[in-house]
Amino acid sequence: MKIRRTRSQEKILDLLNSQKRSLSAQDIYVELRKRNQSVGLATVYRALEALKLEGLVQVRTLASGESLYCPPHQDKHHLTCLQCGESIPLGECPVRDLEERLHAQHRFKIFYHTLEFFGLCESCLQAEKSV
């Protein structure tokens, strides 16, 4: 069964697929407005929620509470500094094999996963030592 998507959902998917970075709902709203595609901020949030439930967008929540969205095929993982907020992408996925095993073992359809380590970056560690 194919689920029909709204025009707003299609616009958001097209935008996210054209980006190399994750975007917040606010960023998506601004980018759509720049492209003369009128859509309200509440509509963006509703569309993102629906797309997330279909497994078509991946959401990553930062330490600040802000949510970032990207297509699930981007599969990026991060080291995030709790002090300055710097987010360092990891170049590999250390849990891909685990995802496949969990899918097979539990017959659970996994749309995506996130992996984020929180701590202090080198700069913040150095600043902390000098105090």
Results as ranks from 00 to 15, higher is better:
47 A>C: 02
23 L>S: 07
106 H>V: 07
88 I>P: 03
19 Q>V: 06
124 C>G: 09
44 V>Q: 00
100 E>T: 10
24 S>C: 12
56 L>G: 00
10 E>I: 11
25 A>F: 00
129 K>H: 12
95 V>P: 00
130 S>C: 10
82 L>D: 04
113 H>N: 10
108 F>G: 02
123 S>D: 15
22 S>I: 01
106 H>I: 04
97 D>S: 14
33 R>D: 11
47 A>V: 02
62 L>A: 12
29 Y>T: 06
115 L>V: 15
74 Q>Y: 07
93 C>T: 11
125 L>Q: 15
30 V>L: 12
12 I>N: 04
14 D>L: 14
27 D>E: 14
57 V>H: 00
119 G>K: 09
58 Q>F: 03
37 Q>L: 15
82 L>F: 04
19 Q>S: 13
47 A>I: 03
110 I>M: 14
76 K>W: 01
36 N>G: 11
8 S>D: 10
26 Q>G: 11
32 L>Y: 01
113 H>W: 08
4 R>Q: 09
26 Q>P: 02
75 D>M: 05
39 V>M: 09
85 G>P: 12
32 L>S: 03
113 H>V: 01
60 R>S: 04
77 H>D: 03
56 L>T: 03
84 C>F: 02
19 Q>G: 04
18 S>M: 03
10 E>H: 14
2 K>Q: 10
1 M>Q: 09
79 L>Y: 15
63 A>Q: 13
50 A>R: 13
59 V>I: 10
9 Q>A: 05
43 T>D: 06
51 L>N: 02
118 F>R: 13
107 R>D: 08
117 F>T: 10
111 F>G: 11
69 Y>I: 07
114 T>Q: 11
75 D>N: 14
79 L>R: 08
129 K>E: 15
18 S>Q: 13
89 P>I: 03
119 G>A: 09
29 Y>R: 13
32 L>R: 01
13 L>E: 01
13 L>M: 09
32 L>C: 07
14 D>C: 06
104 A>E: 15
47 A>R: 03
12 I>H: 08
13 L>V: 10
2 K>P: 11
123 S>I: 12
127 A>H: 08
121 C>Q: 09
24 S>Q: 10
70 C>H: 02
94 P>R: 05
85 G>V: 05
74 Q>W: 04
30 V>R: 12
69 Y>Q: 04
127 A>W: 04
118 F>M: 07
5 R>S: 00
104 A>Y: 09
76 K>Y: 05
70 C>A: 15
93 C>D: 13
111 F>P: 00
59 V>K: 08
44 V>A: 04
44 V>P: 02
28 I>G: 07
96 R>Q: 10
94 P>M: 04
81 C>M: 02
22 S>D: 08
59 V>L: 06
22 S>K: 14
11 K>D: 14
101 R>E: 12
71 P>N: 01
104 A>C: 05
115 L>W: 09
84 C>Q: 06
56 L>A: 02
80 T>I: 10
57 V>R: 00
83 Q>E: 14
100 E>V: 11
27 D>G: 11
8 S>F: 06
120 L>P: 00
1 M>S: 13
72 P>I: 02
53 L>S: 09
32 L>G: 04
61 T>P: 00
104 A>P: 01
115 L>P: 03
63 A>Y: 13
45 Y>R: 15
71 P>H: 02
12 I>L: 09
11 K>R: 15
